[in-house]
């Protein structure tokens, strides 16, 4: 196995002087793997995302993206990563095209290449004919697709998504989940997908269960299920996250 697309080692984080939001978290996401970061609300998923995307830094632990240390060489590391945040991040008053070109400019992609890639990635998501519309005119599912298309414009090796299906209806959710799985299979993109919804995780995926800032289990879905002596991922998730309450 080559260098993991994302490697997190011994990562801890505390907000201010409060309790640890993350404690000694380690995980790896390999190329072509769909890894679900599964945890209840408040488990530390969003904190982990903020650290992986360098919104803030932690003095404890390391994060490597494609082998590049995020703290030592943030620009090169960030250039290899596509991000879909939990909150919407599109400019509602601008068109889909303007939103995508703005992002391309931030990544230094020349205008002509950016235009071509924007069209191509929208086409893949069935959004090509909406390119001239303002984002405000799109529904939630379509806005998410635009954000996904945008996150792929610079052809990243790693795609990280923080609960990307929040607020979407069932068909829109399924479309996004399926599309991202296809990206892993067909283009070898490594995906880290944070969620608290177990039905978004396929049998062939990997899962990292996080609870109260700690990794409780990690590996292929089947291994995690058998490791907890459960029959299904739902059951093993319940066991893993219930222990402390007992």
């Amino acid at each position: 196995m080559g260098t993991p697309a994302l490697l997190v080692e011994g990562l801890s984080y505390a907000y201010g002087r409060g309790a640890f939001a993350l404690k000694d978290v380690s995980l790896a996401v390999e190329a072509g793997s769909f890894t679900a970061l599964l945890g209840p609300n408040g488990a530390g998923k969003t904190t982990l995302f903020a650290l992986v995307t360098r919104l803030f830094e932690s003095p404890g632990g390391t994060i490597r993206i494609g082998g590049i240390d995020l703290r030592l060489d943030p620009a090169r590391a960030l250039a290899r990563m596509g991000v879909v945040f939990q909150q919407p991040t599109l400019d509602l008053d601008l068109t889909v095209r303007q939103n995508l070109l703005y992002f391309a400019a931030l990544h230094g992609i020349p205008r002509r290449t950016a235009e071509a890639r924007a069209r191509e990635s929208l086409e893949r998501l069935g959004m090509a004919e909406r390119i001239g519309e303002t984002v405000r005119a799109l529904n939630g599912g379509h806005r998410r697709r635009v954000e996904l298309a945008r996150a792929l414009l610079h052809e990243p090796a790693l795609l990280v998504l923080d609960e990307p299906t929040v607020g979407l209806d069932v068909p829109a959710r399924r479309a996004i989940v399926e599309h991202v799985h296809a990206l892993c299979r067909e283009r070898g993109i490594a995906v880290l997908w944070a969620t608290h919804l177990i039905d978004e995780i396929g049998d062939g995926d990997r899962v990292v269960v996080i609870h109260r800032g700690r990794v409780r289990a990690a590996g292929p879905v089947a291994e995690v299920v058998s490791g907890t002596g459960a029959d299904s991922l739902v059951e093993s998730f319940n066991r893993l996250t219930a222990k402390e309450a007992a």
Binding site: T53, R54, L55, P74, A75, R76, A77, L78, A79, M81, V83, F85, Q87, P88, T89, L90, D91, F103, L106, H107, G108
Partner: peptide
């Protein structure tokens, strides 16, 4: 920042 587009800016690969 609360709406997220500031985050988008800050995760760009630039200083």
């Amino acid at each position: 920042r609360e709406m997220g587009s500031m985050r988008m800016l800050l995760v760009s690969p630039l200083p």
